[in-house]
Each structure stands twice: as structure tokens, then as C-alpha cells.
Nucleic acid binder design. Sequence first.
DNA 1: CCCGTATATTACCCGTGGGTAACAAATAGT
DNA 2: ACTATTTGTTACCCACGGGTAATATACGGG
Lengths: 260, 260
Amino acid sequence: MRQQLPDMDARSPSDNESPWLPFESRRRARDEKREAVLRTAVALFLEQGYHRATLNDVAKRLNITKPALYNYFRGKDEILFECWAIGNELVDECIAETSAGVGSGLDKLRKLTVRYAELMTTDYGKSLVRFDIRDLNEDNRKIVQTAKRRIDRAFRDYIAQGVADGSVKPCDAKLSAFAIAGSLNWIGHWFQPGGAMTGRAVAEEFAIRLTEGIATTSTRKKADKPPRKGNASREEQGEHHARTAARAAGQSKRARNRLR
Amino acid sequence: MRQQLPDMDARSPSDNESPWLPFESRRRARDEKREAVLRTAVALFLEQGYHRATLNDVAKRLNITKPALYNYFRGKDEILFECWAIGNELVDECIAETSAGVGSGLDKLRKLTVRYAELMTTDYGKSLVRFDIRDLNEDNRKIVQTAKRRIDRAFRDYIAQGVADGSVKPCDAKLSAFAIAGSLNWIGHWFQPGGAMTGRAVAEEFAIRLTEGIATTSTRKKADKPPRKGNASREEQGEHHARTAARAAGQSKRARNRLR
DNA sequence: CCCGTATATTACCCGTGGGTAACAAATAGT
DNA sequence: ACTATTTGTTACCCACGGGTAATATACGGG
């Protein structure tokens, strides 16, 4: 009786994909649905704010009803935490990649800055800085706090390393890290896709701007030509999607938070 | 019957002053109480977050009960807005003072940066960046958005002015302003009084650090000696308190938001 | 001394939204 | 086909907190 026109849903195979087509054909992999919930939730939490966004809103956007969400999560705060956790995995990958690479302290600082900045233009990245830690339960709050310290440590270590190898002017690593990370975190508050600049463009601009104050070498090597259409940046975009896919596949640990 | 021991309250004349001594002697200037509500509310909203902090909490901390708050405010969101408005007045004063002064674009940018940074270490300053605009009604939200644009404009104008007069390297004023203001705004998220550095110390460090990247002249003139005990900085502290007092007295416009 | 106004209290309303219970439909295995 | 399991649904509970009504207390002016 509620068989509303299937044409409406067949119109877009990967539009803003919800695995739950209105009522029928809801056979699908569990984890796929779980991730769909998180995608929708993080978007809604960012749009409306965690407290204004209700679970009914989340469910409605997925063509299901609120109690169905409880098949995948214990409650609202767990959804919040899982959204954050995905963002955190992405940050961890940034740090891991950067640390694995070669280069001076300044090089690594810049590399991390670019990656982190671009992450801040995505939903899961924003969740790292716009969600309120106090909405989590005791355990998860501790996890988040520890992770935040880890990120801060990464910035600080690269700066200290740069001071040691001469690529960075002598400075207070702690304060410099706060200054840089703060500026990057703030991106998560104002960036909106669809604006004048892409996330990648913003990231590259910020990386230069934020590090040129403490670098010993001048940053002004190339002219101000916009880095559009460079095959290098195109390649990196591909890499980005590869990373996202890899994360989706390798969510190993969190994936078995299942209970039932 | 509820005459709880007056010793407990007589112990501290200016401790964490609430004009409502437990039950008696509640004759006091109206505006003084109104401001006390705001002081308490902003502190609580920052501690707990706006949605977790209840009006009962606010009232309890003032030794009164929830409905009494409605003698001074129409509702919770108006309290939030008024807290924000005080912070905004303080910012406006920073901008006005800076614009009134003399100096190059870089000088002004630095001056504003110092003042703004220090403001971010205070409760009312934090309210500017930690309160969620979406908790306000339509009208107030517009006011806040306009004010935010004004602040951004100030940073941008000083940078552009600096580029024009040669004190600032040629750069995209918009992005540079975002980078600087973002870093400063983030102070409001991590600074806690009682830490290793005072608000003023953080402010001065950030002002140097954030502007040295775009300045044409090197910032490294004086050594790293902490600027304590300088008569100039002492004078500025005095000036700061004078400003605070002036604001308390001259809240002219908002003060007659009275209705009844 | 009495009354009006301001300001506080107690008692209450009620919308909201997270969470649960009971039940139904689809799926997979045998 | 029959049944167990998964995964939905509908209907409900109830704690919480913003907001209001009715009322009491203090103060200030005639």
C-alpha cells in the first residue's frame, strides 16, 4: 500500500545514496548500511548541530524509521562517536603517511598541513573539530582526548624536528603548533563546498601561508599561478579517493563493535 | 524556615559575587543583577555547553530560581544573545581603537591581533566563537552574522592597507585574514586561565607569530626576553580595565531592550 | 500604615526527543 | 514449506527542560 513510485528512486543510482529504497528491496550488506547511517548522520549533525538534529531526522533522510537505527548503534551518542572515529582514522592516515615519508621537518610539517587542511573541508574532517566532546560518554571522551593530543604531538614533533635540522626558525614548538593547527581547525568552521575555492586549493594556500612565517627558506619560489589542471593535483585527487576506499575496507577494529 | 546559615555567605564579600544573598537584602540595581545573570550564564554555557546547561543551573548558581530569570530576559536564547552581544561590544572597541590609532597597515593588524587574541582568553570573548549561531532566533542570527562580517572586514582591510603601504607582502587579503582570525578564534577553544601562560602573554606571542609570515620587515628585532614589567605593557593593562569599566557603564543601546 | 510595583517563589504545563516493547516482513538455511 | 534470524515497523513510555500562572514578599511613596 505504501508502494510509492519506484521511478523516483531509480532516477539516481549514486545520487545521495541511501541503501534503503523506500520500502522494498532492502537486502543489502550490513556494513554498507551502517556506513550510510554515519554519512547521513555526520552531514545532518553538521548542518543542524548535534542537539537540533534528531534521530527521526536521520532516519527520515534514509527512508527508514528511528528504531531501525538501533539495529546498528546503541544510541545517538554512539553515532556521534563513530562519525568522529572515521574522521580520526583519516587523520591517522595523514600522520602515518607523513611520518613514513622523507624530508626535512619543514617538509613534513607542510605535508601534514596540506593533508589536514583538506581533511577539514570534508564532513568527517569537520566532525573532528565541530562536535562537542562533552556529548560523548566517559570512555569515548577519553579516547577522543587522547587522539587530540596525538594530533597535536604530530605537529609539534615536526616543528621541533625542523628546528633541529635547520629548516624551521627557532621557536616555541607548542605555541607554533597551536597557531597552525588552530588556523586549520577553523577551516572546518567556515569552509563550504561550492564556494570559490576547492578544498584542495584552500589546503595548499594555507600550507604555504602558515609555514612561511617559521621557515628559514623563503617560500616564494614559484609565481602565483593557480594550480588548476595540473596533472599532479589530478593524480592526488585520485589518491584521495583511493584512501577513502581503503579506509572503508579496512575499518577492521571498529567494525566488530557489534554486539547482538 | 529556609534561613540557611548566613555565615556561609558572609564569608566572602566579593568572592564570586552574586547580588542575591540567599534570601534577604535583594535590593540592588536592576542592571547589576542583569549583568550578574549574564556573567553566570556565559560561564556556565562555556563550561557545560549551551544545550546541557539549563536555566535551573544558571538560577541555582545565583541563589535564585528559574522563573526569576524571566524578569530580566525573555528566554534562554535571549540570554545567549546578550552574552554574545557583550563580547561583540568588546570586539567593536578593539576595532574602533585600532582604527583610530596611527601606524602602517601592519601596525594596525598587529594591534588588532593582540587585542583580539586577549579577548579570546576571556569568557565573553569565547562566547563569540563557541556559541552556535543556530541557537538564536532569526533576527539575532542576522545581527550576529553581520557582526562577524564586520570583524572579518577589519582584518582584511588592515591587510590590504598594509599591502598598499608596503608593510605587508602582497597576498590574498581574504585568505590571510581567514588564516589569522582562525588561529585567534581557536584560542577561545583551548585557552584556560590558570595555565602556564596568561592571556596577555598568549596574545602577544600569537600577534608576532601570525604576522611575521606576511610582514615585509623582520619581526626578530628584540631578543626573546619576556616583556614583563615593561611600563608600556603595564600601561596597557590599566587601559584594559578602564575599557571594561567603560563598557559596563556605557552599554547604552542594549540597556533599553527592556520591555515591561 | 497601606497600597502599588517590582521581584521573587512554588506549582504546574507540555512539547520534544531519546529510547523501548511488541510485532511484522523478509531472508537464509535445511 | 517451515523455522530461526535479521531487520524492519508501529505504538508507546517518560525524563527533561523551557516556559507560564498564580501567589507571596519586600520596598518605596503617599
